[in-house]
Computed example of a mutant assay.
Amino acid sequence: MEEKSYFDGGLLSYIGWIILGSFITTCTFGICFPWAICMFYGWKINHTVIEGKRLKFNGTAMGLFGNWIKWLLLIVVTFGIYAFWVHIKLEQWKVKNTTFLN
């Protein structure tokens, strides 16, 4: 028998996390943006089940913050060219910090 894959997150919690992440990011002038990324991505991954196995996000804002500063510096030094790689680097970091719960 094949296990099912599904997502069990709800609309109200989605809206709540978006509002909270936006508020915190705005109030800190972007400094806490890595926290908002971790919070929202954690919600998304922790509500995902693949073939009967729930995913778990283990990343932390502090773990992302160091990379974030490095990436921003590389963007400045390369006059914006490195920005094309930041999305890929962020996805790699997310996957590196995602495991199966059970």
Results as ranks from 00 to 15, higher is better:
residue 1 M to A: 07
residue 1 M to C: 02
residue 1 M to G: 13
residue 2 E to A: 06
residue 2 E to Q: 06
residue 2 E to L: 08
residue 2 E to C: 00
residue 2 E to T: 05
residue 2 E to I: 01
residue 2 E to S: 10
residue 4 K to L: 15
residue 4 K to N: 11
residue 4 K to F: 12
residue 5 S to T: 15
residue 8 D to S: 15
residue 8 D to H: 06
residue 9 G to Y: 13
residue 9 G to M: 09
residue 10 G to Y: 05
residue 12 L to F: 15
residue 13 S to F: 11
residue 13 S to K: 15
residue 14 Y to W: 13
residue 15 I to Y: 05
residue 16 G to I: 05
residue 17 W to Q: 03
residue 19 I to A: 14
residue 19 I to D: 04
residue 20 L to G: 03
residue 21 G to C: 08
residue 21 G to F: 04
residue 22 S to D: 11
residue 22 S to T: 15
residue 22 S to A: 11
residue 22 S to R: 03
residue 23 F to K: 03
residue 26 T to D: 02
residue 27 C to L: 15
residue 28 T to C: 00
residue 28 T to R: 01
residue 28 T to P: 01
residue 29 F to E: 00
residue 31 I to Y: 02
residue 31 I to M: 08
residue 35 W to S: 00
residue 37 I to M: 03
residue 38 C to N: 13
residue 38 C to G: 04
residue 39 M to Y: 12
residue 39 M to S: 05
residue 39 M to F: 10
residue 39 M to G: 02
residue 41 Y to E: 14
residue 42 G to W: 00
residue 42 G to S: 01
residue 43 W to P: 00
residue 44 K to V: 11
residue 47 H to Q: 03
residue 47 H to N: 13
residue 48 T to D: 03
residue 48 T to L: 12
residue 49 V to I: 05
residue 50 I to S: 07
residue 52 G to L: 07
residue 54 R to S: 07
residue 56 K to F: 02
residue 57 F to Q: 06
residue 59 G to S: 08
residue 61 A to R: 07
residue 61 A to E: 08
residue 61 A to G: 12
residue 61 A to K: 09
residue 62 M to C: 09
residue 62 M to R: 12
residue 64 L to G: 10
residue 64 L to T: 04
residue 65 F to S: 08
residue 65 F to L: 15
residue 65 F to T: 10
residue 66 G to V: 11
residue 66 G to Y: 08
residue 67 N to K: 14
residue 67 N to A: 06
residue 67 N to F: 10
residue 67 N to R: 12
residue 68 W to M: 09
residue 69 I to R: 00
residue 70 K to E: 05
residue 70 K to T: 08
residue 71 W to E: 07
residue 71 W to Y: 11
residue 72 L to I: 05
residue 74 L to G: 01
residue 75 I to E: 06
residue 75 I to V: 14
residue 76 V to S: 03
residue 76 V to E: 04
residue 76 V to N: 04
residue 78 T to F: 02
residue 80 G to D: 02
residue 80 G to P: 01
residue 80 G to A: 01
residue 81 I to K: 01
residue 81 I to N: 02
residue 81 I to L: 14
residue 82 Y to F: 15
residue 83 A to S: 14
residue 85 W to V: 06
residue 87 H to N: 14
residue 88 I to Q: 14
residue 89 K to S: 10
residue 89 K to H: 11
residue 90 L to D: 09
residue 91 E to Y: 12
residue 91 E to C: 09
residue 92 Q to Y: 09
residue 93 W to N: 09
residue 93 W to Q: 07
residue 95 V to T: 12
residue 95 V to A: 09
residue 96 K to Y: 07
residue 96 K to E: 14
residue 96 K to Q: 14
residue 97 N to L: 08
residue 97 N to V: 06
residue 97 N to G: 09
residue 97 N to C: 06
residue 97 N to S: 07
residue 97 N to Y: 09
residue 99 T to Y: 07
residue 101 L to V: 06
residue 101 L to C: 03
